[in-house]
């Protein structure tokens, strides 16, 4: 298929992404990020799954739109749910840009071969690393390693057995992230390919097809 009418550049097309359609999609993605947490509670899945909306938007509407959605999610959760969430907006930004870059590079074009499945898994591992490397410094410097959530027990146990704070937080964060981000990208991808073609923004038609 000749897909040459739509070419995309990661840096030059920042303005092109922000159509009215994109601005309408951002609140939907924010809602999805928040609702992900609600469903995990109902279905008793012991993860956060709070970046699915950001990843989905990065695949169907582009990295910069996803960046606005991700950062806004944490600002809104910061003022409505838990103020310290706002610091982790940096993690959302990293996830948005990296997922969007993968989408531009054609990582999410159909599942035809073993290689395509492998690409999704590699994407999940890379995103887990992005999340761990951005979240750990914030967790250590601003929150002293603890967040008042379940993972505190794991960090505390590592601290008690002689690890430094950074090691304890990094290890705990990575174990959670590798599962969380891998599942998130798989869900975001499967939801993205189920969206009827006519409701996909041009960016998504380009990154998911051809």
């Amino acid at each position: 298929m000749g897909g040459s009418e739509y070419s995309y550049s990661f840096w030059k097309d920042i303005g092109v992404e922000f159509t009215t359609r994109a601005f309408v999609l951002i609140p939907v993605a924010i809602g999805l990020n928040v609702i992900g947490g609600t469903f995990t509670r109902v279905l008793r899945i012991p993860l956060f799954l709070d970046v699915i909306g950001t990843m989905l938007l990065a695949i169907i509407a582009g990295p910069w739109v996803a960046l606005v959605a991700g950062v806004s999610t944490n600002i809104i959760l910061g003022v409505t749910t838990s103020p310290s969430t706002a610091f982790f907006a940096v993690v959302q930004a990293g996830i948005a840009l990296v997922t969007g870059w993968m989408a531009v590079r054609g990582w999410f074009r159909g599942l035809d071969s073993v290689r395509d499945y492998a690409m999704i898994l590699v994407a999940g591992v890379i995103l887990a690393l992005v999340s761990t490397f951005t979240a750990t410094p914030i967790q250590v410097i601003v929150l002293g390693g603890f967040s008042g959530a379940g993972q505190d027990a794991a960090v505390g146990a590592l601290l008690a057995t002689g690890s430094s704070i950074i090691e304890a937080v990094f290890a705990t964060q990575f174990v959670i992230d590798i599962t969380d981000k891998l599942l998130s990208i798989v869900i975001a991808y499967f939801v993205a390919i189920q969206i009827p073609e006519r409701y996909l923004p041009p960016f998504g038609q380009h990154t998911l097809n051809e």
Partner: peptide, 28 residues
């Protein structure tokens, strides 16, 4: 349960996407 998660998310999202079309026309 993981499969159920996708089954819950998809109708929710497609419902929201259909309204985004109307919403963006209204905003324009």
């Amino acid at each position: 349960r993981f499969r159920a998660f996708v089954d819950l998310l998809t109708p929710l999202l497609i419902g929201m996407l259909i309204t985004t079309e109307t919403r963006s026309l209204a905003l324009e």
